[in-house]
Each structure stands twice: as structure tokens, then as C-alpha cells.
Design a protein around this nucleic acid. Structure first.
Lengths: 340, 340
DNA sequence: TTGAAAGCGGTACCAT
DNA sequence: ATGGTACCGCTTTCAA
């Protein structure tokens, strides 16, 4: 295909246009370009000049270089949101989206950084290189005090971790998963079940959630708890159901609704009756729990609005000292249906 | 709580340590610091000097400044992965994780950028500011030729979009969702169903998937297709089921397994029999489809390994001209079970 | 109202 | 073997 206008046709201009290019095209200085494009208030620029600059920028397809800008500014507006490799449930990912949206409204750039396959120290170094103004580590990587220090030295004004264990120097987001386990167990006890199994997913990365949920169940009066390892496969569930009679359990807290549906299916297939032989309660109150039969009892988790959390983060960034060091986040209530 | 060592106790050192700080502490030049910390091969540095530099960096908790580095280098290793606000299914998020992991093994920094609430142009500008070396836009934002141009001018060596429609200048990742719809419809036709409803989720952001799935079903010989709007709520499903008789359908392709489970529940509750009165097929072959009764027929989608796609992206970045402009990605096969 | 110039942190060429 | 230094793109005083 001939190109009559430019036979050489370099497919891409070797370098992106800079503000100097814009200045040259508009016949002004780089300073003026900066003033115009950033709507600087401290300086008056004549309207004709503004037009020229805007037109030149448009023509060149100029986009400012974020790295250069933040280098000059001495800080970024990056909020780093490490993502774990866990296929997050719908509840959690909806929360993340909301948080992300709210942070952008506050003019932060949200960067989700997948840390899969990195050790904690490696991950933290990689995060620190980006000089984020805040790190919200909800995921699988548990931060040490030293890690928090590294991030702070790299300019992070707020480091937020998942509670309830406090990391020195970090703000704690107390999403108390233990409460979820406690509500589930209490609900089973109310139903007269005392020999309670608690499902612990074998999938990695869920420990941060499953461990406190188990602990919360254990701490519930009247509950005698047995942990039950379960992978999210039919085979694993069938194997568990096959040895059910030997377990001597009359109630199960199945980690969440997805695992609960899986387990209930296996139990029914093994000839057990739910809830007569064994009562099952999930968590997260997902739609799927209302679609199966028997309808699944659950524990509803009240997430804060992403907006509220974003506001808290923003305050922590602006006035690190003036903000509470922990932020309670979670309410949990049992939702009885037909499986208990 | 008194702090005897430092009553003033400035909570954070005002600025992160720089390579100049390291150089000063080690008693060497900045150049030497750079050589040592980057294991420069072209330059011989004595072992004692290396030690001093490493020790100083360690002591200060020095972490290089990514922005400064890439500013100097003239390019980044950022692969931008825009995320949509869609609660991605487990299939898709597993794929994303794999891709991300594989890209990091190739030494790219994967940045997921949530573009929720931005228009296409705004989003593209924001991405371009980060000067990514590649953009993999699988999500809800459809790129125009002009958008692709903006990204390319900003230094992106590869812009990858979701097929099958080609955007000039972009590499096309042909994840042909139409094929999914076609397989589902063909399967229903094989089962003797011809008056086929196709569920179109009302949730926003799914259009990029649902539209081609619908079109693929429409193009299937022997299928007379009726689109069915459905939100992912019990109410919406119940409303649809209530007017079912008037629709005169004997088969449904329910977008995916999650919507299928929802719809089947509503149909059963409305007194219809599945598959006798209406055959239902989902897609994605999720575990949930095997747990419900009747077991859900589905269309299995074969995703490529994230590693293969990552390799393709890497080649596109390194030799933009030498790489095929489209990359076929998807295989789809019907998985008959009890609902059809 | 606009321009010249310094400097953010890091790298790499050229000297020494 | 190591140091001096120019430069990447942008913002922001300070002068004119």
C-alpha cells in the first residue's frame, strides 16, 4: 500500500510531544504552557495566548508526563491498592470498586498492584518505588513494622492495614472477621447446635479472612468447634461429606455462601438432610444463597461505603496525626433462612 | 507515653532518602551508587566500595524513585490494564491474575487502572500520562482510532483491544464472544428448540460481552431469537418468569451461568419445568452450574494461558511491526447437562 | 503578561 | 576504579 505523502513513513514519532514542543508550536515559553494548561490562578495570561497554547497542545496530542510532574512536585497522588491473587467474592470486589471510584473523586490515582508471587519485602520495595501517598493493604500480604517504615520513608503518608492486629505506625482498618464467625456460631447455638464444624478453605490467600472467622466461632459460648479443610471443588466436598458421619457434627459454618452451597450439595447427595441432620450457615449473604433449596442461612456483612473509607484515607493523608488510628468497619448480622 | 530518646520526635523524615544521600553516607559519588545498585557490567567497581554503598543504602532504607528513573530512561515498563467496574466472573479474574503474573515474570510492572466513571477520552488521557509501554484494554471502554493514536504518541508500543472489531493501529485480541452465543444457540437447536430467548444483562459494562453473544445467537441457523433484558436480582427474574407464557419460547441462552441459575430458579418457582417446558443453557461452565438441580448445561470458554498472552504482548512491545495484528484467543464448546 | 532558569532523582557518557 | 556533569519533562520562583 503506497503512501504518497511520506514514503519513509516512520510509523510512530520516536518521542511523545513535550510541553516544549507545545511552546514552540504556540510561539511561547514552556512556562506559559504550564500556566495555561494547569489554569494557574496566580498568573494572568491573555486570552489569545491561552487559545494558541490550547490549540497547539490539541494539535500535537500533548499529554503531560505524570512521572516528570510528580518528580517536580515532590509527591504523587497515587493510592496503592495491592491486589491479592484471591478470586475475590462479589461483595469484596464491589467494595473495592466503590472505594476506587470515591478515591478518584478526591483526585487520587488508584493503582492496583498485583503482588502475586512476591515476598512481602519484595512487594513493599516495588510499592515504595512508586512513591504512593497512601497504601491500603487489605490483601494477602501482612505488613511488618519494618515494611511500614520503608513505605513511610518512601513518602507514604498513610499505611492502612487490615485489622485487628495492629502494626506499629500503620493505620488499622478493623474489618473484624472474627465477628462474622462469632455471629455464625451464635446463630447455630441458638438453633440448638453445639458440635459445630467450621470450613477453612484450602485455597491460599484466604487465611487472612478464614483464620479470624474460625477464631471467632471458637470463642463463642456453647460452640464446640471442629475445623474442616475444604477446597472449592466437587471432589473435595464429596470427600468431606463421605466422612461426615464420623465427625459427629450437627452444625456447620461454611466460611461463606459459595462454600456453603458447595457443601450443602455434597451433603444432600450423601443422603443427609439439611437442616434436620446438619444445619449450615454461610456468610456474605450472596444472591446465590437465596436461589438454592433449602434457602441458605447466612451472615450479612455490612461494608462501609467506599466513600466513607475514602474520606478517612484522605484525612489520614492530609493530617496523619489528627486521625484515629483505627477505623471500625464491619457490622455482621445473622440472616436466618431454611438451612438452619 | 514519653520518648526519652527524642522528645521532639518528628514522626516522618520530611523527604525520602535519595541516591545522593546514599553517596554521601558511603563517601562516593552518585554515579558509583548507581553503578553498584544496578550491577552495571560496563564498569568495574571494587568490592569494598560495593559493600560500602550497599550498607549505606540498607541503612537509609533507600528505594529508587521509579518516576525519576523512567524519566531518565525515556520509557517505562508499565503495562496498563484498565479494569472495568464489572464484577468480573471467576473465570475472567483468574485469567487476569495469570496474565499479571506472567507479565511480571517478563519484568513488566502491571498497573490496573480503574476507569470507572470516566469517559473514553478522559480515561485514555489518564492512561497516557503514565506513559505505559503497552495497554491491554479488555474492559468496558471501547477505544477509537484517535484514542489509540493518543496512546501511541504517548509512547505505547502496543495497544491491545478486545475483538473482533478492528481498531486501526491497535492489536486485536480476538476473544470472539459471538462464538459463545453461536455455540449456545446451536446446542439449543440440536435439542429441538427454535424459539430462543437470549438474556441481555441490564447491568452496565457488560455490553461488550453481551452484544456479541446475542449477535452470535442471532446468526445461528434455525434459531429465532428474542432478547430478554434481565437484571441480576430476584425481582427482575420473577418479573420475567411471570410473563413467560406470553413469550412463546422453548429455549434460553442466559448470558452466563450466574444469570442462568437465577433465571432457572424463577422459572421453576413460576411452575415451569426445565428442560421440558424450556431448555436453559448458560456459559462459562462455573462450578455453581453443577451444584444446582437440574444441572445446568453451559458453554465452556477456553481462555488462553495468561503466559501465552503475556508472551505475545512482550513480542508486540519489542517488535511492534513483526507481530501478527490479531491473536485468536477463544474456543467455545457446549457442555450438555440436564437443563437442556 | 511572559520568559529564563533552577531543580526534582537517577543514569550514563566522558574524564581523570 | 571513580567522579563530574548533562539531561529526561515539568513546575515555579524571580526578573523583565
Amino acid at each position: 500500500m503506497p503512501d504518497s505523502t511520506n514514503p519513509q513513513n516512520p510509523p510512530t514519532p520516536p518521542t511523545p510531544p513535550t510541553s516544549a514542543d507545545v511552546a514552540r508550536l504556540a510561539g511561547v515559553s514552556r512556562a506559559t504552557v504550564s500556566y495555561v494548561l494547569n489554569n494557574a490562578e496566580a498568573v494572568r495570561i491573555s486570552e489569545p495566548t491561552r487559545r494558541k497554547v490550547r490549540a497547539a497542545a490539541e494539535e500535537l496530542g500533548y499529554v503531560p508526563h505524570a512521572a516528570a510532574r510528580s518528580l517536580r512536585a515532590g509527591h504523587t497522588r497515587i493510592v496503592l491498592l495491592p491486589t491479592s491473587h484471591v478470586p475475590a467474592g462479589p461483595l469484596y470486589s464491589a467494595f473495592l470498586n466503590e472505594l476506587q471510584w470515591a478515591l478518584r473523586r478526591l483526585d487520587y490515582t488508584v493503582v492496583q498492584y498485583g503482588s502475586l508471587g512476591l515476598t512481602g519485602d519484595e512487594a513493599v520495595r516495588a510499592w515504595a518505588e512508586l512513591r504512593p501517598v497512601a497504601v491500603i493493604s487489605l490483601g494477602e500480604i501482612a505488613l511488618s513494622a519494618h515494611n511500614v517504615d520503608t513505605l513511610k520513608r518512601a513518602g507514604a503518608r498513610a499505611v492502612i492495614t487490615l485489622g485487628p492486629d495492629r502494626v506499629p505506625g500503620a493505620h488499622a482498618l478493623v474489618m473484624d472477621q472474627a465477628e462474622v464467625g462469632a455471629r455464625a456460631a451464635a446463630h447455630l447455638v441458638e438453633r440448638g447446635r453445639h458440635r459445630i464444624g467450621v470450613v477453612v478453605p484450602e485455597e491460599e490467600g484466604l487465611t487472612l479472612f478464614s483464620a479470624p472467622r474460625l477464631a471467632g466461632a471458637r470463642a463463642t459460648p456453647g460452640a464446640e468447634v471442629t475445623p474442616l479443610d475444604l477446597a472449592y471443588t466437587e471432589e473435595s466436598a464429596a470427600a468431606l461429606a463421605a466422612r461426615w458421619d464420623g465427625l459427629g457434627l450437627d452444625g456447620v459454618f461454611a466460611y461463606n455462601d459459595e462454600y456453603a452451597v458447595l457443601l450443602v450439595r455434597a451433603l444432600l447427595d450423601a443422603g443427609l438432610r439439611v437442616p434436620e441432620d446438619v444445619a449450615v450457615v454461610g456468610a456474605d449473604d450472596l444472591l446465590i444463597g437465596r436461589l438454592v433449596r433449602p434457602r441458605l442461612s447466612s451472615v450479612r456483612i455490612e461494608m462501609p461505603s467506599g466513600e466513607r473509607l475514602a474520606g478517612w484515607v484522605d484525612r489520614a493523608v492530609r493530617v496523619p496525626s489528627a486521625i484515629a488510628e483505627r477505623y471500625d468497619l464491619l457490622g455482621a448480622t445473622a440472616v436466618p433462612r431454611d438451612s438452619t
